[in-house]
């Protein structure tokens, strides 16, 4: 790792000031992506500003119409939270599928959403549930927030405070994990929020995306069979040593059908 200065921020305000003062600074919370990146010398921040232990962004709050999860809440805390299990059980389940237990003990929701790894799990939930990414400056709709591989609507110095999830009627997530890394080769989150059905896909493309043909079909008929005749266009999907784009296209459909199958009875 290159040298850097570590600063533990006492408040989000102070973190914002530090980011403004040091343009090459990076925020640190769990560090599950950032520290390996630094170890590989793929980044050279001058400062690491630690916001991981700020109490104000470590809370889970269930309100009448939404579930608000602080950016520094760990994946483990989401997975075992009674509020999350009650309001959006699929989200608790998704959190329990991320990485491994040690990673879930450190990694955070805000970190995952800010990083927007194309194979991360949380972006699929945030997009399918039509959640809002709350920063110190504004609320960003999920549809506007995710902008492709590691790209988001966040401006320089903008800090994710929490994610607001509207409460769905029902939701489910199915993931085909890479057997070694645990990352999604394809992960599909299906949510019914009010009259709307939203289907978000992670792991298969350059970034999380909605599968609108599936949304249309499921609005008419919420059953796995409704997707039988659909095919996913493989043109823009990822192709690498693990799977061809055609294989991933098929995985997306299979995962979507498995997610829809989980919805039965909810």
């Amino acid at each position: 790792m290159y040298q850097f200065n570590y600063v533990k921020a006492k408040s989000l305000k102070e973190a914002g000031e530090l980011l403004a003062a040091h343009p090459d600074a990076k925020l640190l919370a769990g560090g599950m992506t950032l520290l390996p990146t630094l170890k590989a010398r793929l980044a050279q921040p001058t400062h690491l500003i630690d916001i991981g232990s700020l109490a104000g962004i470590k809370k889970i709050t269930l309100k009448t119409k939404k579930l608000v999860i602080g950016a520094a809440v760990s994946h483990h805390a989401v997975a075992v939270s009674d509020e999350v299990k009650k309001a959006i059980p699929a989200l608790a389940r998704l959190a329990g599928l991320i990485g491994d237990p040690q990673v879930r003990n450190r990694g955070t929701l805000g970190g995952s959403v800010a990083n927007n790894d194309p194979a991360a799990d949380y972006p699929a939930a945030v997009l399918a549930l039509n959640a809002k990414v709350v920063t110190a400056r504004r609320r960003i709709k999920a549809d506007d927030y995710f902008q492709g591989m590691f790209a988001t609507a966040l401006e320089p110095g903008e800090i994710v405070k929490s994610i607001e999830f509207p409460l769905p009627l029902r939701a489910a997530y199915a993931k085909f994990a890479h057997p070694a890394s645990g990352y999604a080769m394809a992960g599909v989150f299906v949510a019914q929020v009010g009259k709307h059905v939203r289907v978000a896909v992670t792991g298969a493309g350059a970034g999380v995306f909605r599968w609108s043909a599936a949304e249309k079909a499921l609005r008419k008929n919420m059953s796995p069979a409704a997707l039988d005749k659909l095919t996913v266009d493989a043109t823009d999907l990822n192709e690498d040593m693990h799977a061809s784009r055609e294989y991933r296209a098929n995985l997306v459909k299979v995962m979507a059908q498995r997610a829809v199958a989980q919805l039965a009875g909810q």
Binding site: Y6, K8, L28, G31, M32, L35, P36, L48, D50, G52, H76, D100, P101, Q102, V103, N105, R106
Partner: peptide, 21 residues
């Protein structure tokens, strides 16, 4: 996971945490 230790009651990978954290 060979570096797993317990920090404040939870198992963590100590190769992916700074001492200052």
């Amino acid at each position: 996971g060979a570096c797993t230790v317990n920090v404040n009651g939870r198992a963590v990978k100590s190769c992916t945490m700074l001492a200052v954290q």
